[in-house]
């Protein structure tokens, strides 16, 4: 059982700009080892960007991200790739390799990072695909799968190496209720049984809260609220309440920053 106060990932004073837009402003958070941490927030708050920063695909303008004590962005290219072999990431689009079958996709990390004999690779692939309900689709190409199936196949690939740390980018989007239930169960079981550290970025509040141990709510580049799911559900902060209940009106803006609507409609046309 993982210790409670053991930090796996530490994000300190992170600032990140995309062109003229500030995505993160002095953001700090910690992700405990062996727990499921959910990162939630309105769309456009840079949740996916945060995962890419943790994975070292983007470089922060300020601040640091430490995984197991190593500053991700100070590592050499070789060390960074070694670190990534211990991470699994489920991309929003699935990102299956289109020139390979589903089974080859799942086998890919195993073939690259291990010297396991082909028969063992095959068995492992079948086990992972069985876990996501796609054993029968192993010989299909990614183009033949639906969006939800592609994401489940990608999940099988992400867990192929049993990584220490898994990042899920919108795992529930586009899933039917049955697949959703299976995925929630799977993520939760993977975490409890193998002690993976999991980070889930999602909009599906109820599903995510049902398995998360800790939740960060991010808005405007900062941590708006954090705590156990119950704490957030019971929060009286109007911004937190608005998000958790999904209300259109409230202090959290629904609109992308824009000049006044009235001015644009009736003002001087430039």
């Amino acid at each position: 059982m993982a210790q409670l106060n053991d930090t796996h990932i530490e994000v300190s004073n992170l600032s990140f700009w995309r062109g003229e837009r500030k995505i993160f402003d002095d953001l700090s958070l910690t992700i405990p080892r062996g727990k499921i941490t959910a990162i939630m927030g309105p769309s456009g708050t840079g949740k996916t960007t945060l995962l890419k920063l943790i994975g070292g695909q983007l470089t922060p303008d300020q601040g640091s991200i430490r995984v197991d004590g190593d500053n991700v962005h100070a590592l050499s290219r070789r060390r960074l790739f070694e670190l990534r072999a211990k991470m699994g990431m489920l991309f929003q689009s699935g990102a299956l390799f289109t020139d390979m079958t589903v089974a080859e996709n799942v086998a890919f990390p195993l073939r690259v990072h291990t010297d396991l004999p082909e028969s063992v690779v095959r068995d492992l692939v079948l086990m992972k695909l069985n876990a996501v309900g796609l054993r029968g689709a192993s010989e299909l190409k990614p183009a033949e799968l639906s969006g939800g199936m592609a994401r489940r196949a990608a999940l099988a690939r992400a867990i192929a190496l049993d990584p220490d740390f898994l990042m899920y980018d919108e795992p529930f989007a586009g899933q039917d209720p049955i697949a959703m239930g299976v995925l929630i169960n799977l993520i939760s079981r993977l975490n409890r049984a193998l002690g993976h550290t999991s980070v889930i970025v999602s909009h599906d509040i109820q599903e995510t809260l049902s398995i998360a141990d800790y939740v960060y709510l991010i808005s405007d580049g900062k941590v708006l609220a954090q705590g156990a799911p119950d704490q957030l559900n019971g929060s009286e902060d109007p911004r937190v309440e608005q998000f958790m209940k999904g209300r259109p009106d409230g202090p959290v803006p629904f609109h992308f920053p824009a000049p006044s609507f009235k001015d644009q409609l009736f003002g001087d046309s430039q």
Binding site: G55, F81, R84, M89, A95, V112, H113
Partner: peptide, 17 residues
Amino acid sequence: LMKATEQLACYEMIGVD
């Protein structure tokens, strides 16, 4: 297209350059 469908990013995250 590999870049647009995040396949290149995925290779990186799997630890393959």
